[in-house]
Amino acid sequence: MGVHHGGDTVQNNLHSSPVDVVNIALTVSAPDVDVVNIRSCEKVNDVVDDTRTRLVDSALRLLREEGLDAVTLRAVGDQTGLSRMAPYRHFADKTALLAALALRVVTDLSAHVAGAVLERDGRVERMRAFYTGYVEYAMEHPEEYRLVFASDFLIGDHPELEAAIDEVMAALGMEVTCDQAASKAGMMALLSTAHGLAQLAAAGHLSHKGISHTDVIDVLVTP
């Protein structure tokens, strides 16, 4: 394969084999080497991101099918069809894996709740949709919900997860209260109430008393 200097030649050879890419980098001018290196790094990053996503997907399947205790780095590697050591290249330990999984669950939970809220008009109906969507998600996905509030995630240890939760809560706060200036304390009050109600419903305390979570929500949102 003949190699010529210039950006056009580099562009034409970006899909070459790894060996060819190295040969190009050794023979082209310095600016062209930079282009090849950037493209090569992008491809490597894409592979890393794809593998990480597959690992989190597998962790979510294990969580749903076998429960939180079944989610280990080795089990996730087996589930993904990779070597048992592959997950260790992407997650420092089991807690790091669970934090990434919790981030996925928070995203799913927020999408579920936001979808319900945005279908309603007015503060009262949006609050009703928020409580209903939140509690129903917790009851339908008990293992995911348990994970997000697991004691593994100590305050300050997982800033990425905390930031995602804060962002979700802020966005939901504006949608639920119809107030652009919704306070953190106000949203935390909504979240605390929804969380407590979800816990009571999941544990069977409400049904034992002959009431449903919707009965409680009616009381909560009635002016």
Rank of each mutant, 00 (worst) to 15 (best):
F91N: 01
F91I: 00
F91H: 02
A92N: 11
D93G: 00
D93N: 10
K94D: 05
T95I: 12
T95P: 00
A96C: 01
L97W: 00
L97Q: 01
L98R: 13
A99I: 07
A99N: 06
A99W: 01
A99T: 06
A99D: 03
A99L: 03
A100G: 03
A100E: 02
L101N: 14
A102V: 00
L103D: 09
R104Y: 12
R104N: 10
R104K: 15
V105E: 15
V105I: 13
V105D: 15
V106L: 03
T107Q: 01
T107W: 03
T107H: 05
T107C: 02
T107I: 00
D108T: 15
D108W: 13
L109T: 15
S110T: 09
S110D: 03
S110N: 07
S110H: 06
A111Q: 11
H112Q: 12
H112I: 02
V113M: 10
V113T: 14
V113P: 07
V113G: 06
V113S: 09
V113C: 11
A116F: 08
A116N: 11
A116Y: 10
A116P: 07
V117L: 09
V117E: 08
V117F: 07
V117H: 07
V117P: 00
L118S: 11
L118D: 10
L118F: 10
E119V: 15
E119K: 15
E119P: 14
E119F: 11
D121T: 08
D121W: 03
D121A: 11
G122K: 03
G122D: 07
G122V: 04
R123L: 07
R123I: 04
R123H: 03
V124I: 01
E125H: 13
R126V: 12
R126T: 14
R128H: 07
R128E: 09
A129T: 05
A129Q: 08
A129W: 08
F130L: 10
F130P: 00
Y131C: 09
Y131W: 06
T132K: 05
T132M: 00
G133E: 10
Y134I: 02
Y134F: 13
Y134W: 11
V135I: 04
V135G: 08
E136L: 10
E136K: 15
E136F: 01
E136P: 04
E136V: 04
E136G: 09
Y137I: 15
Y137R: 15
Y137E: 07
Y137V: 15
A138I: 01
A138C: 05
A138Q: 05
M139F: 06
M139S: 06
M139C: 09
M139D: 01
M139A: 05
E140K: 01
H141W: 02
P142Y: 02
P142S: 06
P142E: 04
P142I: 02
E143F: 08
E143P: 11
E143W: 04
E143D: 09
E143I: 01
E143R: 11
E144Q: 15
E144V: 03
E144Y: 09
E144A: 06
Y145N: 12
Y145I: 07
Y145Q: 09
R146D: 14
L147A: 08
L147S: 06
L147D: 04
V148C: 09
V148P: 11
F149W: 12
F149K: 05
F149G: 02
A150T: 13
S151M: 07
S151A: 14
S151T: 14
D152R: 06
D152I: 05
D152A: 13
F153C: 06
F153L: 13
